[in-house]
Structures are given as C-alpha cells and as structure tokens.
Design a protein around this nucleic acid. Sequence first.
DNA 1: ATTTTTGCAAACCATTTGCAGCTGG
DNA 2: CCAGCTGCAAATGGTTTGCAAAAAT
Lengths: 172, 172
Amino acid sequence: MSTLEDGDNEAALAPPPMSESPEEKFREFLAIRGEKLTAPRRLLVRHIFNSHKHFDADELVAELPSDAQGRKVSRATVYRTLRLLVEANLLRELRLTNRTAYEHDYGYPSHDHLHCTECNAVVEFRNDALRKLRDEVSREHGFRASGHRFVITGLCPKCVRARGPRRRLDLV
Amino acid sequence: MSTLEDGDNEAALAPPPMSESPEEKFREFLAIRGEKLTAPRRLLVRHIFNSHKHFDADELVAELPSDAQGRKVSRATVYRTLRLLVEANLLRELRLTNRTAYEHDYGYPSHDHLHCTECNAVVEFRNDALRKLRDEVSREHGFRASGHRFVITGLCPKCVRARGPRRRLDLV
DNA sequence: ATTTTTGCAAACCATTTGCAGCTGG
DNA sequence: CCAGCTGCAAATGGTTTGCAAAAAT
C-alpha cells in the first residue's frame, strides 16, 4: 500500500491518510486477512514505533518489558510478528550482517545507509538524485521498481581517525 | 588491493598487473600470509572463475566435480575457501536472501543489481553517476567509502507482463 | 464455537569449528 | 620436517515450526 519506499506512482485510489498510527495501520492489514491484533502484537508495534532505531530480533526480545505476571512475549511470537510487520510494509529488512536488522518503513522518510564495517555503525542519509537514478535504470531495463537498497560500506569518521593513519598494505 | 570496488584512490605502490589470473592473484594473497594454494583451493578458484554466474555455497558444492577417486571437496573447505576469496578481494558477498551469494570482484567491471522479487532473477547494470554520488555522500558524512551495494528491487519485464495487469490492492 | 495465536521446545539450515591425519613448500 | 590443510562430524546461532493450551470474535 504505497509506502514511502514504493516507486509506483500511479494513484489508483485515494491515497491513505498518512495520519493513522502504525498500530492502526497494522490492525487494518490484519483485518483484511482476517487476522487479529492481539495483546502481544499490540505491545510489539507500539514498542517498535516508539523509537526510530534500527534493531534486530534479539535486541527487541531483550528490550521488551515483562507483563504484570513477569512474562515476556516469546521469541517465536517476536519473529512471527516481525514477519507480519514486514508484510504490512510497516518495517523493512536490512540484512547488513548475519542477523536481519529492521527499520521503520512507515511514517519515516525514505533514505539509504552508510555502514561502518569496523564498528558496525549505521548512518542514514537522504539523497534525491538516487531515486531518480533508480527509476532511470529501471526503465532502461524494463523493470518496475518497487524499492531499492543502497548501502555505502566503509569507515565512519571515528574509525577513520582510529585506524586511518595506518597504511593500506598491512595484509598480515 | 585496489579492486574495482575499492574507493581508495591513492597509489601507494605500483598498480597490480591486471593481467594475472585469479588463481595467480589468489596464490599471491596466500603467499603473503604464509598460506598455501592447495589442490582443493586451486580447483575452487578455477571452477569459480570459469563462469560469471552468481552462486551460493550450496550451488557450488553441487556443481563441483569429483576427483579420480570419486571424492569431492568437502563443504567445510568450500566455506573456508570462499571466505578466503572474499578476503582476497576476488569475490564479493551479495546477501540478497537468507543464503549468502557470491560474485566476481576481480577482472569484472564494477556494477550493481536489479533484483526481481518475483522470480528472483538478478540483472547487472553499470552506472557511473552512482559512484560519484557515493563519494559525494561519503564525503559529506566524513566516511571513507570502500565499496557500496545498490540493489533495485521490483519486477523484471517477464514478471511485469505475467502479473502486471493486476491492480495493486490485492492484499488478500 | 470456531478460528487464530501463543509459548515451549524441538527442528531447521546455513555456516563454523575441533580434531586427527594428510600435504604442500 | 612442519606449519598449514582437509574431511569428518559435531557444534553454533539465527530463525522456523509442530503442537496443545489460551485468547479473540
């Protein structure tokens, strides 16, 4: 449903009201499929959209609060819900390392990433030329682009300072 | 060692002769680290650089020929060698799905990818503006870029024709 | 009441690793 | 000869799944 990442620019029907909350959007998505917005799921959407950090399943599990009875949402449910949120276009997968990272794909402007291979830091940036470039290339190849991922890998300023002085032949 | 993907443009020492074979380049890389170009490793480099396909560890294992005694290179060695080839900048990792894909990063011009989310096809393209854009962005953020990955996701021409006619609200 | 969801634990699957014996230089 | 390899099999680690109990409509 026309996310910020979506390249399709036809306006088949009324644009969705960008004012609905992630939770509301998730509820709609589930309703359409005859599925339910349960307590664990509500807890997860709320928690996830309370901050704009990147995160992975493990971090999420660790951060989650326990309920009154000291029970946490199970790891299995976390994974299942993450899958749903991705299908609902509320989250986007990142795959920079062996574990899958997630970031908001709803209510958050389209952007790309700089990834420090040294300290694993991830910095976001916006660049409009990129989108144009993407559509150009897609057109040339007869593709219908629905999204893209542009990751620049290298050393962040901190790591450049930390080890930049070294020469670049130290293969051993 | 100054690969096509490398953004560092200082010329610390004589540029490597681009005429040496992947096998030769691998041998040098290993020699520097006091390691050996063994029979299994030689078989792997040769096999891998005989074609320009993308591949993953599993496909590689499946394709590998058995020796005279009907033994194949073990899966463990395949993984270990792939890691080495990546370190040697002969191969590059791709990470489009859950399994790691590999492609040549030596003797093959720098390029990016269109990824069809329907049939999983991967098409390569070259675009020089992208590299410039990458360096610009890196500079703005104080990064020292060493590479990038730009993947445009969407439907390839074939899949557009196959299912393009459908409207775009079919969430169910 | 019926269908979906949850939590647990076991299963999965790609990848990694310990180790004893083999091998290249 | 000796450091570095290989293969095997067992271990890992992230993610998925079967199933019976629990919850939602």
